[in-house]
Amino acid sequence: MKEIDCRGLSYLQIIREIKKYFNSIGEGEAIVRVSSELEHDNVMRYSTHKGYKVYENDDENKYMIRIEKRGCLELEEEENIFSILITNDKLGDADETLGKILMKEYFEALNEYDELPRAILFLNSGVKLFSNGSKVSEDLKLLYDKGVKILINDTSLDYYDMRKDITFGEIVSMYDMIVTMKKSKRLIKL
């Protein structure tokens, strides 16, 4: 049985390690070691979501989780098609610095998630995420390289004078954005 030592790693690093191992095998088991209750709960949630069997240990070994992959089919179902609408360059109504940190974390986590959106649509100040020096543009490029459609509203780009900053994705009209939204089974607005 494989042992995956994730003590001292961030949440995304832990998920990457688990994902890397289980994607490399058809079926099998692993013991995952973590450092805290929060990490333990996150691993439990992730593994359950993936359809793996999860076995908890007693209190003495509570930061060891045994995960078993047997006959799990990880198929993207047609009804799970979704798109994301970004209308701001920060996440939430929080402090501006915190909002930008949260937006960066959101796209880092989305890159690790197994089910990617069909499209991400950017309008209003959301187009600022493509500006030179944006900490999010690298994560957006990774999503684009994975096949996610990146649609950037032309009117918003012109308003902020940012057309020159766009190196990937499609610059589209509001009509094109509406067509994409309508084709999505779910639309998540940030």
Rank of each mutant, 00 (worst) to 15 (best):
F22W: 02
I15L: 04
Y63D: 06
D59N: 15
E76F: 11
N132D: 15
K62C: 10
I14C: 00
L85S: 01
K2Q: 15
N42P: 04
Y11G: 01
G51H: 05
S83K: 01
T167W: 06
I150V: 13
G26M: 12
I25A: 11
D161P: 02
Y52K: 04
S134T: 07
N132R: 13
R66L: 11
F122K: 03
D95N: 14
E68I: 15
L187N: 13
R16M: 05
D139H: 06
I67H: 03
S173H: 08
Y55F: 12
D158R: 12
S134L: 11
L187K: 00
G8Q: 10
D158N: 14
K189L: 03
K104Q: 12
S36Q: 09
I65F: 08
R33V: 02
H40L: 15
L151T: 01
S24C: 10
K62D: 02
G28A: 05
G51W: 06
N132Y: 11
I65T: 09
L121P: 00
L91F: 14
D176C: 06
F168C: 03
H49V: 14
N88F: 07
S83A: 07
I14M: 01
R70E: 14
S35A: 13
Y21T: 03
I150L: 13
T180D: 09
K135M: 08
Y21V: 04
K183D: 15
K135N: 09
K62E: 08
L151I: 08
C72E: 14
H49P: 02
K189Y: 06
E39H: 07
E3H: 11
S156Y: 06
E79F: 10
E78F: 08
E112P: 05
I25L: 12
M162I: 07
G147R: 09
S35T: 07
I150K: 05
S35R: 06
L157Y: 01
I84Y: 00
K90N: 02
R7L: 06
T48Y: 14
M1Q: 11
K69A: 01
K149R: 15
N88H: 14
V34S: 02
D139N: 14
V148A: 06
N23P: 03
N80P: 01
Y160L: 02
R7D: 04
M103T: 08
K20Y: 14
T155W: 07
M177I: 12
